[in-house]
Simulated assay, not measured.
Amino acid sequence: MAEKVDLNCDMGESFGAWKMGDDENVLRHISSANVACGFHGGDPRIMGRTVELAKTYGVAVGAHPGFPDLVGFGRRNMDVTPEEARTDVLYQIGALAGFCRRFELPLQHVKPHGQLNNLAMHDRRLADAIVAGIADFSPDLLIVAYGGELARAAEARGMRVAYEAFADREYNPDGTLVSRRLPGAVITDPDRVVERAVRMVQDGAITAVDGSRLDFPIHTLCVHGDTPGAAGLVERLRRAFAEAQIQIVPMAEILS
């Protein structure tokens, strides 16, 4: 049984007058924060405030770069060249790193957002471009991936991968996530999410929609900050992990 797991959440996705999530209350219970960098969500004020709050609550910070798609929240397919993907990722990491520097907090990881992440599961050219953009900033950054070509591209460069699982998402038998456009793709029952999260970590495996078992190294579990009641959910997850004697720590500690 795994004794440690990272609990991460996508956050800092509000911008201007538009608010998403309950970031401050979520930050009290997680160990790593994936902070939006302005392309799919976030703005300079939100980025700075999120990093500052992460430091207050002792939470590690990572960049959450996405497609330049505020209207679609980064969840739509975009046809970008490898050079566009590489430079867009580098640009977004650099923006967040500026706020990390301001608040004297190290940048721990990079987790691609939404469809940028999903497409990189199968598209090796895109995966290589994303990894190149991350390496351009620093090859020491952890790359969060849920497998596929993104993980393989990172490992081919000798970079460390934090393998991620989603307790609130259904999986296809090939290890990809069921499309959000399909009914039931997002699990909204808190009891099921909590039970599933603990079982994933204990078993080192994921159960797909057809009942098949996907053996999988799980370093970090994601909770989506835009899920209704996310703050209460992460609090319940933390209690459940404590009862199962699973310690929540930043992913860098697990991969050190």
Rank of each mutant, 00 (worst) to 15 (best):
A2M: 14
A2D: 06
E3F: 05
D6A: 15
D6M: 12
E13A: 10
S14D: 04
F15G: 00
G16F: 03
A17K: 13
M20K: 03
M20D: 01
D22A: 08
E24R: 15
N25R: 15
V26Q: 03
I30Y: 12
S32K: 07
A33V: 11
N34F: 05
V35G: 02
V35S: 02
A36Y: 09
G41E: 00
D43Y: 11
D43V: 09
I46W: 07
M47L: 13
G48A: 15
R49S: 14
T50E: 07
E52A: 14
L53M: 15
A54V: 07
G58R: 07
A60G: 13
A60S: 15
G62L: 05
F67I: 04
F67Y: 15
P68L: 13
V71K: 13
G74C: 07
R75H: 11
P82A: 02
R86A: 12
T87L: 13
D88V: 07
D88N: 15
Q92C: 12
I93H: 04
G94T: 08
A95K: 13
A95C: 13
A95P: 08
F99T: 02
F99M: 04
R102Y: 12
E104M: 06
K111M: 09
G114T: 05
N117Q: 13
N118D: 08
R125D: 14
A127V: 11
D128I: 02
A129L: 12
V131L: 10
A132K: 14
F137K: 08
D140N: 12
D140V: 04
L142Y: 11
R152H: 12
A153Y: 08
A153L: 08
E155T: 14
A156W: 07
G158T: 08
R160G: 00
R160I: 09
V161D: 03
A162P: 11
Y163L: 01
Y163Q: 02
E164M: 10
A165S: 14
D168Q: 11
R169H: 00
E170P: 00
E170G: 04
Y171H: 07
Y171E: 04
P173S: 00
L177C: 10
L177G: 10
V178S: 08
V178E: 02
V178T: 12
S179A: 14
R180K: 11
R181E: 14
P183W: 05
A185M: 06
V186P: 04
D189E: 15
V194I: 15
V194T: 11
E195M: 06
A197N: 06
V198G: 02
D203F: 00
G204M: 05
T207Y: 06
D210N: 11
D210K: 06
G211K: 09
S212A: 06
L214K: 00
D215Q: 05
P217T: 01
I218E: 10
H219I: 06
H219W: 07
L221C: 03
C222N: 02
C222P: 03
C222H: 02
H224G: 13
H224K: 11
G225N: 12
T227K: 08
A230R: 00
A230Y: 00
L233H: 14
L233M: 14
R238I: 01
R238H: 02
R239M: 11
E243V: 14
I248C: 06
P250W: 04
A252H: 14
A252P: 00
A252T: 08
E253S: 10
E253Y: 03
E253F: 03
L255P: 05
